[in-house]
Computed example of a mutant assay.
Amino acid sequence: MIPVFLLRLLLIFGVSLLVFAPITGYIAYNYGRSFWRWFALGLLLPFFSVFIALFVAMRERSAEDQAGRQNPPRR
């Protein structure tokens, strides 16, 4: 018989996989990254992967803004 505590822990982990993995993939896909690669990362690191994907997206956006400021469009 499985203890109730272990059953609850497995349920929480399973739900987090179903929630965080697709969110991570969606964030990455919106910034031009591979959905399935980031989905797999979301399966391996359910909670932290969302923050990693957001960090990568914000860093990429910042680099694009920096490049845009250095090379303004010609008129």
Rank of each mutant, 00 (worst) to 15 (best):
M1I: 08
M1V: 10
I2W: 08
I2H: 07
I2M: 10
P3M: 04
P3V: 02
V4I: 13
F5W: 03
L6G: 09
L7R: 06
L7T: 03
R8C: 03
L9P: 03
L9V: 02
L9F: 11
L11K: 07
I12Q: 11
F13N: 10
F13V: 08
V15M: 11
S16D: 12
S16N: 13
L17Y: 08
L18Y: 05
L18N: 04
F20M: 14
F20I: 02
F20P: 01
I23T: 13
I23R: 12
I23L: 15
T24F: 08
T24K: 09
G25A: 01
I27G: 09
A28G: 01
A28R: 05
Y29A: 14
Y29G: 00
N30L: 13
N30I: 03
N30S: 06
Y31N: 15
G32R: 01
R33W: 02
R33Q: 12
S34F: 03
S34A: 11
F35K: 02
F35H: 04
F35M: 04
F35S: 05
W36K: 02
W36C: 05
W36Y: 11
R37G: 11
R37C: 02
W38M: 06
W38H: 06
A40W: 10
A40C: 11
A40L: 15
L41P: 00
L41F: 07
L41Y: 03
G42W: 01
G42M: 03
L44W: 00
L44Q: 06
L45W: 04
L45V: 10
P46L: 07
P46S: 09
F47Q: 09
F47Y: 12
S49V: 03
V50Y: 03
V50F: 01
V50L: 08
F51E: 03
F51Y: 14
F51T: 04
I52E: 00
L54P: 04
L54I: 09
L54K: 05
A57T: 05
M58E: 15
R59G: 06
R59S: 14
E60R: 09
E60D: 15
E60H: 07
S62D: 15
D65A: 13
Q66H: 11
Q66T: 13
A67R: 06
A67N: 01
G68K: 10
G68V: 01
G68W: 05
G68M: 02
R69D: 13
R69S: 13
R69K: 15
R69M: 15
Q70K: 11
Q70G: 08
N71M: 12
P73M: 07
P73K: 07
P73Q: 07
R74A: 15
R74Y: 14
R74P: 09
R75Q: 13
